[in-house]
Lab assay of single mutants.
Amino acid sequence: MDETGKELVLALYDYQEKSPREVTMKKGDILTLLNSTNKDSWKVEVKITVNGKTYERQGFVPAAYVKKL
């Protein structure tokens, strides 16, 4: 869990989004878990840094590609 009590997951593999509802992640990324009720895909939040500014983006990733921490 992070400092706000949200559950975290670790990306086990790289994943490139295939639709606007998904998010891209790299192996080793730590993501905030938002919903894990679907056995196939979990909703997560990723933090992306562009030019020194951090943005948050929500979307789905394959459940088999992440592990709860």
Rank of each mutant, 00 (worst) to 15 (best):
L31Y: 08
K26G: 03
D2F: 13
E17N: 06
M25Y: 02
V61K: 00
V50S: 08
R57W: 08
G5R: 13
G52C: 06
V66S: 00
L31H: 03
A11R: 02
G28S: 02
K43E: 14
I30F: 05
M25N: 00
S19Y: 07
A11G: 01
L69N: 02
R21K: 11
Q58R: 10
Q16H: 11
D2Q: 14
V44D: 00
T54A: 07
K47C: 12
A64K: 14
K67I: 14
L10A: 04
E22D: 06
Y15C: 04
F60Q: 02
V61P: 00
N35W: 06
I30L: 07
A63D: 03
R57D: 01
L10N: 02
V44T: 00
D40Q: 09
L34I: 15
S36H: 08
S36P: 04
E7F: 10
E17C: 12
K27G: 04
K67Q: 13
D29E: 09
V61H: 01
D2H: 15
F60V: 05
L8P: 03
V23Y: 02
Q58K: 07
L31T: 01
M1H: 14
Y65S: 12
S36K: 07
S19I: 03
K6C: 15
S41E: 15
E56F: 15
M25S: 02
K47A: 08
P62Y: 06
E45Q: 13
T37V: 09
L33V: 06
K26N: 09
A11E: 01
T32A: 08
E7G: 10
R21A: 13
L8Q: 09
Y15D: 01
E3R: 13
E7H: 11
V46T: 10
E45F: 06
V44S: 00
L12I: 09
S19P: 03
L31I: 06
D40E: 11
V9H: 03
D2N: 14
L12D: 02
M1V: 12
N35C: 12
G5S: 12
W42T: 00
T54M: 10
I30Q: 02
T4I: 12
K67P: 04
K39M: 10
K39H: 11
K68E: 05
K43F: 15
A63T: 05
L31N: 00
T32P: 11
V66W: 02
D40P: 02
S36I: 05
D2M: 14
E56A: 15
I48W: 11
D40G: 08
E22F: 05
E17Q: 12
T32Y: 10
V44Y: 01
V61Q: 00
V9L: 11
T49V: 13
K43Q: 11
T24M: 04
V9P: 00
N51W: 05
F60E: 04
T32V: 15
R57Q: 07
M25P: 01
Q16T: 13
L8D: 02
N35D: 15
E3L: 14
K68F: 09
E17M: 11
K27P: 02
K26H: 10
T37C: 14
Q58T: 11
L33Y: 01
E7S: 11
V66Q: 02
E17I: 05
T37L: 09
K53M: 13
S36N: 07
L69G: 01
Q16N: 13
G5A: 13
